[in-house]
Simulated assay, not measured.
Amino acid sequence: MSAERPAGQKAILDAARHEFAERGYGAASIRGIARRAQVSLSAMYHYYAGKQELLHALLDESSAQYFASCEAELARAGADAGERLAALVRATVRYRAERRLESSLLLTEWRHLSEGRVKEARQRQYDGSRLFHEVVDAGVAQGVFRTPHPEDARRSVIAMCNAVAQWYRAGGDVGIGELAERYVELALVLVEYRPAGSLPRRSG
């Protein structure tokens, strides 16, 4: 989707992404975004009417990318709920670590959207939570998740994965792949995963 955009539009979105993440939506300005993108205000308004449209475009793109990542991981997982939870954790941790700015906007700045678009953002949040909800419910039904508190475990797993965007920095002691596998192990402990065979396979 983003590859089809003209270079000027991509520059505007990239500038807005950084401005919103660094300054917050309220403090960011259209002039500052245009200056950072090295485009004129007229070029800016050719693509977007203002900050609201820019924020909506960024959040819409980020959500699509996140759900695509989840779908790709789930497609490689088996029917076992442990494997499917591992897939969701890997997708979420990797996305939060690799796309920290997008994640920050997605998790915090959506409140600045207009009323109708806030409803869309809340629906996307619900859809993301529902992915985990369905997997945890399936694990309980399969008898492989033994936790007596599945809802608390689900919320803890989601919060743990989302928090990666706040602290992870590239170039540290732990690579993204290793971090994702650590979080898979932690998530499986939280749901008290007791498979009939071995633990979910590690992704390549």
Results as ranks from 00 to 15, higher is better:
Ala15Phe: 06
Glu102Ile: 12
Asp14Asn: 12
Phe67Arg: 09
Ala121Thr: 02
Arg35Tyr: 14
Asp80Trp: 11
Leu55Val: 02
Gly204Asp: 10
His149Asn: 12
Ala196Tyr: 10
Ala159Glu: 09
Ile176Gly: 02
Gly171Ala: 09
Glu185Pro: 12
Gly78Val: 07
Glu115Asp: 13
Cys161His: 06
Ala79Tyr: 06
Ala121Cys: 08
Lys119Gln: 07
Tyr25Ile: 00
Ala121Phe: 06
Gly139Lys: 00
Glu102Cys: 15
Glu181Gln: 14
Gly24Asp: 05
His149Glu: 12
Tyr25Pro: 01
Asp127Ile: 06
Val174Ile: 05
Gln38Arg: 07
Leu58His: 01
Ala180Ser: 09
Tyr66Glu: 04
Arg94Ser: 07
Ala121Arg: 01
Val118Tyr: 14
Gly78Phe: 09
Val140Gly: 08
Arg117Asp: 06
Val174Cys: 02
Tyr193Gly: 01
Asp127Ala: 13
Glu151His: 12
Leu74Ile: 06
Leu106Arg: 03
Arg182Glu: 12
Gly204Pro: 15
Leu105Gln: 01
Leu131Cys: 03
Gly177Lys: 03
Tyr193Glu: 01
Ser29Asn: 03
Leu59Ser: 01
Phe132Leu: 05
Leu131Arg: 02
Ser40Arg: 05
Gln166Leu: 15
Glu22His: 13
Arg23Phe: 15
Ala86Arg: 01
Glu83Gly: 09
Asp127Lys: 10
Ala141Ser: 14
Asp127Thr: 09
Arg23Gln: 15
Gly50Leu: 09
Val184Ile: 03
Arg194Gly: 04
Glu83Met: 05
Thr92Pro: 15
Val140Asp: 03
Arg146Gly: 09
Gly128Lys: 04
Ser42His: 15
Glu22Asn: 11
Leu113His: 01
Gly24Asn: 06
Cys70Phe: 06
Lys119Asp: 05
Phe67Val: 11
Ser129Arg: 12
Glu109Val: 08
Ala86Pro: 08
Leu74Cys: 10
Gly82Trp: 08
Glu102Gln: 15
Glu19Lys: 11
Tyr48Ile: 04
Asp60Glu: 03
Glu181Asp: 14
Glu4Gln: 07
Arg169Ala: 09
Leu85Val: 03
Phe67Gly: 05
Ser63Thr: 12
Pro6Thr: 02
Ala34Cys: 05
Gly78Ser: 10
Tyr126Asp: 02
Val164Met: 00
Leu74Arg: 07
Glu102Ala: 15
Leu190Tyr: 11
Val157Cys: 02
Gln125Pro: 04
Met44Gly: 08
Val174Arg: 02
Thr147Asn: 05
Tyr95Asp: 04
Ala11Gln: 01
Met160Ser: 11
Ala81Asp: 03
Lys51Arg: 08
His133Thr: 02
Gly24Met: 09
Ala121Val: 04
Leu55Lys: 02
Glu109Lys: 06
Ala196His: 12
Leu190Trp: 10
Leu41Thr: 09
Phe145Ala: 02
His56Glu: 08
Arg36Asn: 03
Ala64Met: 14
Gly8Trp: 00
Leu85Ser: 03
Gly177Phe: 07
Arg99Pro: 10
Tyr48Ala: 02
Leu101Ser: 13
Ala91Glu: 02
Ala163Ile: 05
Lys10Ala: 14
Arg5Gly: 07
Arg100Thr: 10
Arg122Glu: 03
Ala87Val: 04
His46Cys: 13
Gly24His: 06
Trp110Leu: 04
Phe20Val: 00
Ala153Lys: 00
Ile12Lys: 00
Ile30Thr: 12
Gly24Leu: 07
Ala77Lys: 01
Ala7Met: 03
Tyr126Thr: 07
Gly197Pro: 13
Arg124Val: 10
Arg124Ala: 11
Arg155Asn: 06
Ala97Ile: 12
Asp173Pro: 12
